[in-house]
Simulated assay, not measured.
Amino acid sequence: MAGPGRRRRRVHWVAPGDGADHITALPLELRARIASFLRFRQVAQLSALSRPWRHIHRHTPVVNVKLADFLSLTEEMLDVLNEDALARLEVALLRRGQERSGSKVDTLRISCNVDDPRIRRHAGLIIALADARRICILTPRFCRLPMDTWPVDLSPAARVLEVGAIGRPAPTVAGPGAAALQTT
């Protein structure tokens, strides 16, 4: 512990000095697992890093989407939704589902404000396109509109649905995956 007259000693961590990129040298499955801790938008940006990372967004077992990242405030204090960025996200999920080389999404974690019909529409589309086995939906605590039920259409692969909707009713569950949900 440094007293008033003592200087703190700095500790510097140094990577191995061979100049190699040790993370890129990892197997694709391990890199994809590490990348799945990022939001999907950041994983898509990571895919532009270099050739070995080009298709990392097609292999992450967990897809994290925060739809508030696609909203921006204007000078008039209106929420503007970046439809182009959302469309690119949805196309990436669609292509991932269509390609045989990509892996299936195991878990979809989506954070969205279900009070906004635009966000709710995109959330429903993302849930359908991800075709995940496990779906985790988190909604903010505040709500601007009366607390109505909100629909969630589950894809055929859905087996587990977790909803973090504090202070609001649970969603109405429909779709081909509704009957296959596991009850706990």
Rank of each mutant, 00 (worst) to 15 (best):
M1V: 09
P4Y: 07
G5M: 06
R8A: 15
H12K: 13
W13I: 13
V14S: 08
V14P: 00
V14Q: 12
V14K: 09
V14N: 07
A15V: 15
G17E: 15
G17K: 11
A20S: 08
A20I: 07
H22E: 03
I23V: 15
T24Y: 06
P27R: 08
L28A: 05
E29M: 10
R31S: 03
R31W: 02
R33P: 00
I34L: 15
A35S: 13
L38G: 02
F40K: 03
R41T: 08
Q45V: 06
L46Y: 02
S50Y: 07
R51P: 05
R51L: 11
P52V: 05
W53S: 06
H57K: 01
R58V: 00
P61M: 09
P61S: 11
P61Q: 08
V63N: 00
V63D: 00
V63I: 14
N64T: 06
N64A: 07
K66F: 13
L67T: 00
D69I: 01
D69Y: 08
L71Q: 04
T74L: 12
E75K: 12
L78R: 14
L81G: 02
N82W: 08
N82D: 15
L89H: 01
A92Y: 00
L93I: 04
R95N: 12
R96N: 03
E99Q: 10
R100F: 05
S101G: 09
S101Q: 13
G102R: 02
K104C: 13
V105T: 13
D106T: 15
T107R: 13
L108I: 07
L108F: 06
R109Y: 10
I110W: 01
S111K: 05
C112N: 02
N113V: 02
N113A: 12
V114F: 04
V114T: 10
D115R: 05
D116F: 01
R118P: 03
I119S: 04
H122A: 07
L125A: 14
I127C: 02
A128F: 01
A130V: 04
R134S: 09
I135L: 11
C136H: 12
T139A: 10
P140E: 06
P140T: 05
P140W: 07
F142S: 11
C143D: 10
C143E: 11
L145H: 12
P146V: 02
T149I: 12
T149S: 14
V152M: 06
D153F: 09
S155R: 00
S155I: 03
P156W: 04
A158G: 05
A158P: 03
L161A: 04
G164P: 00
G167H: 05
R168V: 08
R168L: 06
A170L: 15
V173E: 01
G175L: 03
P176I: 09
G177R: 03
A178R: 15
Q182E: 13
T183E: 12
